[in-house]
């Protein structure tokens, strides 16, 4: 295991620009709890909220509608909107689960979504967004393994919401929550494999 970096730790005596590093009086410090990125000079955080990026996939729930503009609850402090137009009309209901793509981010907290697609039935769980990459795994290995082992359909949003339907949903949920809990523990793929294939 690499050495842990704490908030306020000196990263460089000079001014560097790197992820999760801030500069004060010409020196660079970590702004998170994490570890050094071996391929760069930034810090990879252990935990962290979701910072939206254009073109990434999110999952949310329709929470209100007015004049063909739908507000989507992404489980974060952001305000996310699906804006219908003259030629693009949607017919979502409040409470519908939607998968969509981040099209634009305004003033740091308003997100414009595009290509919304309703995910029917099933359930949604929310995990820490920082654990989503681990849940997906390299080339989707982790998520495919859970999906196949439980015969469930699973859709993953980068904002931390995960939609699950069919098959053994309880087992799929338990496996996903275990990935969240043990994201940093070596050998996770093996343990999850054992968990979902045992039944």
């Amino acid at each position: 295991m690499q050495e842990i970096v704490y908030p306020g730790d000196l990263i460089a005596d000079t001014q560097i620009r790197a992820p999760n590093v801030y500069v004060e009086n010409g020196k660079s410090y970590s702004m998170v709890l994490g570890f050094k990125d071996s391929s760069g000079s930034g810090i990879i955080p252990f935990e962290g909220g979701w910072v939206p990026k254009i073109e990434e996939t999110v999952i949310g729930i329709i929470s209100s509608e007015r004049n063909n503009v739908y507000e989507v609850d992404l489980g974060s402090h952001h305000r996310a909107l699906i804006i219908g137009g003259k030629y693009e009309r949607f017919s979502f209901q409040i409470g519908d689960v939607v998968e969509a793509t981040v099209k634009d981010i305004e003033d740091g907290r308003t997100i414009i979504l595009s290509y919304p697609n309703a995910l029917k039935e099933g359930t949604v769980i929310s995990i820490k967004p920082s654990k989503i990459p681990r849940l997906i795994g390299k080339n989707n290995t982790m998520i495919n393994q859970i999906s196949q082992g439980t015969s469930s359909k699973i859709s993953v949003g980068m904002n931390g919401m995960v939609w699950i339907r069919d098959g053994n949903v309880a087992l799929a949920t338990a496996a996903i929550l275990r990935v969240e809990e043990e994201a940093h523990v070596p050998g996770l793929t093996g343990r999850i494999k054992e968990m979902v294939e045992k039944r």
Binding site: I61, S63, G95, T123, V124
Partner: peptide
Amino acid sequence: AINMVKTAY
């Protein structure tokens, strides 16, 4: 909103 989905499920 997530509660609505969970409740339905």
